[in-house]
Design a protein around this nucleic acid. Structure first.
Length: 251
DNA sequence: AATTCTTCCAACCGCCAAGTT
DNA sequence: AAACTTGGCGGTTGGAAGAAT
């Protein structure tokens, strides 16, 4: 009973990957694509756990990965997103093209967390160290706001109907597409066709912090955080939740 | 030059939720 | 419905590399 291990761990390689292992994994994924991590090691001829293969590919071998030299712009974006989302590394990484959650997490824990120590409303930044001798701006301040709590889950099938003129509906009525296509209404289909799935990352039913989003959207310096269509969707979501609250109060 | 200390990050671990049987 | 599997996440750690003594 209980959770079985992802693989038999006996006789498997552990620790740093060799160049040969990297080549084997890269070659296999280029031919067969990602996924089926459990079976991959055996099929590819690697003496590694499937999880380890997945991690190595996602965090290091993927062709679209940028490594190192995090720019000032990326750092500022990281700080803003962390302020908004907290330790939701995968979500933050999703807003920083080419960066992985592991890299963001490491960068935060190594450099940025040291800047933002303390629990007061305003935090002095005084750490300047950076591996690449890049100077980090000093004496910045960061206002602490509540973060939007999201769930670290695969969230691919929750659809938020956000069309203009949306009627009131209880959150229990949020439409769930059973197969991602057949049950999608025109509004949900529109949403799924949208280039941005950003909003689907949030669990609005239980943990959405409306105030934080509204506050964030009102701050023009945060505009760069979102694509125009994403900002629009967030604003629609705020309006929708506002009207939803009103409607519930009136029942 | 040798030793100790510190920093950094790749990799591991356990947990959770979704998906499958 | 329950049991089990899979994929994904965030927290933590071990060891290599660099800095300090």
């Amino acid at each position: 009973m209980g959770r079985s291990p992802c693989c038999a761990k006996v006789g498997l390689n552990r620790g740093p990957w060799s160049a040969q292992e990297d080549r084997v994994l890269t070659s296999y994924i280029k031919t067969h694509g990602e996924g089926k991590w459990r079976d991959l090691p055996q099929k590819a001829g690697l003496r590694r756990c499937g999880k380890s293969c997945r991690l190595r590919w996602l965090n290091y071998l993927r062709p679209d990965i940028k490594r190192g030299n995090i720019s000032q712009e990326e750092e500022e974006l990281m700080i803003k997103l962390h302020k908004l989302l907290g330790n939701r590394w995968s979500l933050i990484a999703g807003r920083l093209p080419g960066r992985t959650d592991n890299e963001i997490k490491n960068y935060w824990n190594t450099y940025l967390s040291k800047k933002f120590q303390g629990k007061t409303a305003q935090i002095q930044l005084n750490k300047t160290k950076n591996k690449n001798t890049k100077e980090v701006p000093q004496a910045k301040t960061l206002e602490r706001t509540q973060v939007i709590r999201t769930r670290a889950v695969r969230c691919t099938k929750v659809v938020l109907p956000l069309q203009e003129g949306n009627i009131h509906m209880n959150t229990n009525n949020l439409e769930l597409a059973s197969d991602g296509k057949s049950s999608a209404s025109s509004s949900t289909q529109r949403f799924m066709d949208d280039s941005s799935n950003f909003l689907m990352d949030f669990d609005i039913v239980q943990e959405y912090n409306l105030f934080s989003v509204q506050e964030m959207l009102q701050d023009s310096s945060n505009q760069a955080l979102f694509e125009p269509n994403e900002a629009l969707e967030l604003q629609k979501l705020c309006s929708f939740l506002d009207s939803e609250d009103e409607w519930i109060k009136n029942q």
